[in-house]
C-alpha cells in the first residue's frame, strides 16, 4: 500500500515537472538569462507554500499519517562543500538543462538521449564517492 502512495506522489511530481516546463532545457537557459519570471515564480511560490507548511508542522507539532513525529534534520554546517558542490552542479544543470528530478521525467516523455545524462550523473556520483575524503568539505 505504501508503495502505491510513493508511486502516486512520483506521478504527480513527474506531471508537474513536465507541464511546468521546469524539465525544459530552454526554460533553464531562459532562467539564467533573467529574461522571464516563469522559473523564479515556480521556485518562489513553491518556497512560500513550502515554508508555510513547514512552519505549521512545527508550530502545531503535526504528525505523519502513520502517527510518527515529523522531524527536520538541520543540514550540517559548512561553506566549501555547499559552494563548490553547488557551482559544479550549476554548471551541469545549465549545460544538460536538467536536474535530478526532471531527468527521470524526460525518460517518460520519450527523450532517449537523457539516458546518457542520467548514466553520467550516476558516474559523477560514484566519482564523488571515490574522492570524497580528498575534497574540502
Amino acid at each position: 500500500m505504501r508503495a502505491v502512495v510513493y508511486l502516486v506522489i512520483g506521478v504527480i511530481f513527474g506531471i508537474t515537472m513536465y507541464k511546468s516546463e521546469a524539465a525544459s532545457w530552454f526554460r533553464i537557459y531562459e532562467m539564467f538569462q533573467f529574461k522571464s519570471f516563469h522559473m523564479y515564480g515556480i521556485i518562489g511560490s513553491a518556497l512560500i507554500v513550502g515554508a508555510l507548511l513547514i512552519f505549521l508542522i512545527k508550530r502545531f507539532k503535526l504528525k505523519s499519517i502513520y502517527g510518527e513525529r515529523i522531524v527536520f534534520m538541520p543540514k550540517e554546517r559548512s561553506f566549501s562543500r555547499y559552494m563548490f558542490g553547488g557551482i559544479l552542479f550549476g554548471l551541469g544543470w545549465a549545460l544538460a538543462g536538467a536536474c535530478p528530478g526532471p531527468m527521470f521525467t524526460l525518460i517518460g516523455a520519450g527523450y532517449s538521449p537523457i539516458l546518457v545524462v542520467i548514466a553520467s550523473a550516476i558516474l559523477g556520483t560514484y566519482v564523488y564517492g571515490l574522492l570524497k575524503d580528498k575534497l574540502p568539505h
Partner: peptide, 25 residues
C-alpha cells in the same frame, strides 16, 4: 556535452549534499 553536463550534476549534487529539490525547495 550530455556526458559532461550529467557528470557535473551528479558529482556536484552529492558534493553539495543535495540538488534543486533537496536544497532549493
Amino acid at each position: 556535452f550530455l556526458i559532461v553536463g550529467g557528470f557535473l550534476v551528479g558529482f556536484g549534487a552529492r558534493y553539495a549534499g543535495g540538488c534543486t529539490s533537496g536544497h532549493a525547495i
